[in-house]
């Protein structure tokens, strides 16, 4: 634009200004504004900057992968060790995901931090589906959200259904005490007939299984036992201790909840680290690929400018000779 204007102006002013002064003016303007036509040196500055930033990103993702890997190792043994804890309850009370009750509470277990692949959105998706599955005209389904990420996703469309939000679970290493406190908190503040804990069960570093555990309230356990459904076998058990059977069932349900939640939280934390590890691994790999491509472009550009310069020199020389 400026060049064209200048040329136009120049043409108008040509009789007034001597040609020498015009070229001087032109070169002083050009060095600031634009590369003149015919000169084909290409700036490599942009590409170099880009390469530098990609390299830095790669360094960061590699470090994050290492951190996730070491955290995973610590938490994996704990998660695996806690797997025995819920089995007796399933052996005794059975697995009842299809139980039909009025008040459902969905406990979505998620992570506080992002950059860990799709585990949080999977948990949220499953929770929403469970919500849909258990909603009806006379039913009431609520959420209890553990973790920042599920909160961010669930608040958007089902804010009114969220009962409790608990975050910063993993500030300290997870332990049974802490989880029991959370379990107690939930039991005290939420009315439920069935608790459904949605979490990602750790299978390997690259795979997690979305899982739902169901915990029934003592009243529902009693009802199901009497009606002789899935829990019909429970009637054959003698109950020791406690004043009444319902008291024992109450204790049992609370203990079961804390045990299952403990396992769920550990499994989810383990899946999170695994997912983060694989996500960071693939992003370092992507950064490497990008860096390769950029290096190629950079080198090609550099070579092109060298070649251009050589051609110019040679053709200049041959013109002089000829």
């Amino acid at each position: 634009m400026a060049m064209a204007a200048l040329r136009r102006e120049g043409r108008r002013l040509a009789p007034l200004i001597s040609p020498q002064s015009l070229t001087a003016l032109r070169s002083s303007l050009i060095s600031e504004e634009q590369i003149p036509q015919g000169v084909r040196s290409i700036s490599t500055q942009v590409v170099r900057n880009r390469m530098k930033s990609v390299k830095n990103i790669q360094k960061i993702t590699k470090a994050m992968k290492m951190v996730a890997a070491s955290k995973l190792r610590a938490i994996q043994t704990r998660a695996e060790n806690s797997r025995g804890l819920w089995q007796p309850f399933i052996a005794l009370l059975g697995d009842t995901p299809s139980v039909d009750v009025k008040k459902n509470v969905i406990i979505t277990v998620s992570s506080d931090k992002g950059l860990c692949g799709g585990i949080n959105s999977t948990a949220v998706k499953i929770s929403r589906a469970v919500h849909k599955l258990n909603s009806g005209p006379d039913k009431e389904t609520k959420y209890v959200v553990l973790g920042e990420k599920a909160k961010a996703q669930l608040v958007r469309d089902s804010k009114k259904d969220i009962e409790i939000i608990l975050t910063e679970l993993q500030k300290n290493p997870l332990n049974y005490t802490q989880v029991s406190v959370i379990a107690d908190d939930i039991l005290k503040n939420v009315e439920f007939d069935a608790l459904r804990i949605v979490f990602n069960k750790f299978q390997s570093v690259v795979s997690f299984l979305p899982t739902m555990s169901t915990i029934l309230s003592p009243e529902i356990v009693e009802r199901e036992t009497e009606s002789g459904g899935k829990l019909g076998e429970l009637d054959s058990y003698e109950v020791e201790g406690g004043e009444t059977k319902s008291e024992i069932l109450q204790n049992l349900a609370e203990f079961q909840f804390s045990c299952v939640l403990f396992n769920a939280v550990l499994e989810n934390a383990c899946s999170e680290q695994g997912a983060r590890m694989s996500a960071m691994d693939s992003s370092s790999r992507n950064a490497g690929d990008m860096l390769d491509r950029l290096t190629l472009t950079y080198n090609r550009t550099r070579q092109a400018s060298i070649t251009t310069e050589l051609i110019e020199i040679i053709s200049g020389a041959s013109a002089l000779e000829g």
């Binding site: 697995d95 849909k132 899982t211 555990s213 169901t214």
Partner: peptide, 16 residues
Amino acid sequence: VVPNLDPPRTPLAFMT
């Protein structure tokens, strides 16, 4: 209800 999503596992799947 949710045909496009696999059902979550339940503890029974992991039970010995």
